[in-house]
Design a protein around this nucleic acid. Structure first.
Length: 233
DNA sequence: AACAGGTTCAACCGCGACTTA
DNA sequence: ATAAGTCGCGGTTGAACCTGT
């Protein structure tokens, strides 16, 4: 939206370029697959819009953030899922009840649990993602995606194009690259049949925790080091 | 047609991280 | 070492648009 005058500072010009003018931007609706992908990524990454956007070529963090706030949040609510925790709303209510119960015995613990519960969407520091979710992710990657990938179920086998090299020296980097390519393939390919949609959905499920390495800086690299994956590999 | 309320989304703001002089 | 400038991000705002009455 243009302000009253057309005066722009460098900062707002940059922002306008990034969010609106860039020629490589995609416009229009998000496909169902991409919606699901955003939800999956949000579940793991929280409000890390830039990292989510990094998995969706041609989409900006602003666009995804807006889409989340205006559409996806409501969609999840309608489905009875808390968009903040990605858990069923009833379950949240139970958790709150439990919290109240417990708080009569212990004032500190419930607070800590609540913080733990909400850590990644409120103050989503990647390094704070709990072990359970990262372990879950690793398991999924290992048994669903990687195994099928290594068994040749994925046809997209160019060496640079995402094949996960278990023998590679830098397994973490390779794993992250593998995931990135999976994500990118989703956006570029699109789906033409139900079968394909299923495959894509499986890919989303299995590669839920997309790599943010396209944007990864040194500090982010360090943060990635906090993930269970590192220890696992 | 007119209005109110809701929704969308580009733009703004402030902050922390990073870079440069 | 450090001050100033720049970048990138997430949260928020508000004008434009849509929908229902």
């Amino acid at each position: 939206m243009l302000s009253q005058s057309l005066e722009r500072c460098g900062k707002s010009c940059r922002l306008r370029w990034i969010n609106y003018l860039r020629p490589d931007l995609k416009r229009g609706m998000f496909s169902q697959q991409v919606e699901d992908l955003i939800i999956s990524l949000h579940e793991v990454l929280g409000n890390k819009w830039a990292q989510i956007a990094a998995q969706l070529p041609g989409r900006t963090n602003n666009e995804i953030k807006n889409f989340w706030n205006s559409c996806l949040k409501k969609k999840l609510m309608k489905q009875g899922i808390d968009p903040a925790t990605h858990k069923p709303l009833e379950e949240n209510m139970e958790a709150i009840k439990d919290e109240k119960k417990n708080s009569t015995y212990n004032n500190e613990k419930p607070k800590m649990e609540a913080i733990h519960h909400h850590h990644h969407h409120l103050h989503g520091n990647i390094s704070k993602i709990n072990e359970e979710s990262s372990q879950h992710f690793v398991n999924k990657i290992e048994f669903d995606s990687l195994s099928s990938y290594l068994n040749g179920e994925n046809n997209n086998n160019n060496n640079n194009g995402g094949g996960f090299l278990w023998e590679s020296e830098n397994k973490l980097e390779n794993l992250l690259e593998f995931q990135t390519n999976q994500m990118k393939n989703l956006e570029f390919k699109g789906s033409s049949s139900i079968e394909e949609s299923k495959i894509i959905q499986n890919q989303i499920n299995s590669a839920t925790f997309g790599s943010y390495h396209p944007l990864m800086s040194m500090s982010e690299n360090e943060r990635a080091g906090s993930f269970g994956i590192v220890h696992h590999i």
